[in-house]
């Protein structure tokens, strides 16, 4: 992967990244590669001791699915660097959203499949069979190896998740956020699987299915939540924070600034989130119906772009009154 040279400009489309984001992107790429390397080891390790445990199977499938978000992120991080072209005047930022949908749908489908698979095992009272394992000439219970594998794989993803979470906020990257969020919760999957296997050891054959169902529901839950977020982002939902918790505060700041200008009477923007960067259309009503000069408009636009690196693709549209058809819920003063 030809990664950003530390000193050259790094772009998302035609947005040049500030140093803080440039550094965050560099780190995010690094940690996604580390994640992929880690997953390669952990999926191989868990596969080696998979046995007949449904919970281990569910944990393993979750591990395999965990490859998708980092791969999506790394692919998208390359594609969105392209500058807008004649054919793609808005740039290639949507690559992030598409990657997000693909990863989310995969999670949903596998979660649902595992729930059905585990339920069939549980209802059919199929007792999970776990026998011996040849451990350097000693025959030990394979269940111990499974529990050991789960203990080994429980914590590293939590560490990776916490780091990536911070980077996701800086980069305003929802795929990275979803990935980090899932990594962070990985210890619970490992614990559940380990407990399920320990339960088999106590003769509680159903403990395995209970753990498998718990893991499957968590996969499905992640899948549904991410699918919903990814689809609504692709449908130009108003820009929200990186974790979808609230509307992005930038919208409010832009409107406040534009309203505060001497030559405006009212202003309101609509903002869509293209992945990392925003597309902003700001409607302004000039005071006393007097058209602002081109210099005034340009100065306002530059000030807005200066507010945040995510704002680059911005247009200011002087209007006689705020167009309610473009700004649903807008009042004449543009207050929210």
């Amino acid at each position: 992967m030809t990664m950003a040279k530390r000193d050259g400009p790094v772009r998302f489309g035609h947005t040049e990244l500030p140093d803080e984001q440039k550094e965050a992107l560099r780190k995010a790429v690094k940690f996604e590669w580390i994640t992929i390397g880690y997953l390669a080891v952990s999926t191989a390790l868990v596969f080696a001791v998979l046995g007949n445990s449904q919970a281990m199977k569910a944990a393993w499938v979750e591990d395999v699915l965990s490859f998708l978000p980092p791969i999506s992120f790394l692919l998208a991080a390359r594609v969105i660097r392209k500058k807008p072209t004649e054919e793609h005047p808005y740039g290639f930022h949507r690559a992030v959203g598409i990657a997000h949908v693909v990863a989310a749908v995969a999670l949903t489908v596998m979660g649902a499949y595992l729930i059905v698979d585990s339920a069939i095992g549980l209802l059919g009272t199929e007792h999970p069979t776990i026998g011996g394992f040849d451990f350097f000439g000693q025959t030990i219970w394979l269940g111990w190896m499974m529990i050991g594998a789960m203990v080994l794989t429980a914590l590293p993803p939590v560490y990776l998740g916490l780091i990536k979470l911070k980077l996701a906020e800086k980069l305003h990257d929802k795929v990275l956020y979803a990935d980090a969020d899932m990594n962070k919760a990985d210890w619970m999957t490992a614990t559940a699987a380990g407990v399920g296997v320990a339960g088999i050891g106590f003769g509680l054959w159903w403990a395995d299915y209970a753990a498998a169902l718990l893991i499957s529901f968590s996969i499905l839950h992640d899948g549904v939540r991410n699918t919903r977020a990814a689809i609504s982002a692709l449908m130009d939902k108003r820009a929200r924070t990186y974790d979808d918790a609230e509307p992005h505060p930038l919208g409010h700041r832009l409107d406040e600034y534009l309203r505060g200008l001497a030559w405006t009477e009212a202003a309101q923007s609509r903002i869509r989130d293209e992945g990392h960067v925003f597309h902003v259309e700001s409607f302004v009503v000039p005071a006393k119906g007097r058209m602002p000069s081109l210099e005034q408009l340009e100065a306002a636009q530059e000030a807005c772009i200066g507010m945040d690196w995510k704002v680059q693709d911005m247009v200011i549209i002087p209007v006689a009154e705020l167009p309610s058809e473009f700004l649903p819920g807008a009042t004449s003063g543009g207050e929210r």
Binding site: H127, I130, W141, G143, M188, T191, A192, V195, G196, A198, G199, I200, G201, F202, G203, L204, W205, A207, A210, A211, L214
Partner: peptide, 22 residues
Amino acid sequence: VALLLASVLTLAGCGSAYPADP
């Protein structure tokens, strides 16, 4: 998970062999 862990550990005292036969 914590609840499941607790119940499994409680049951740990009951069995003799590990792993046990259902």
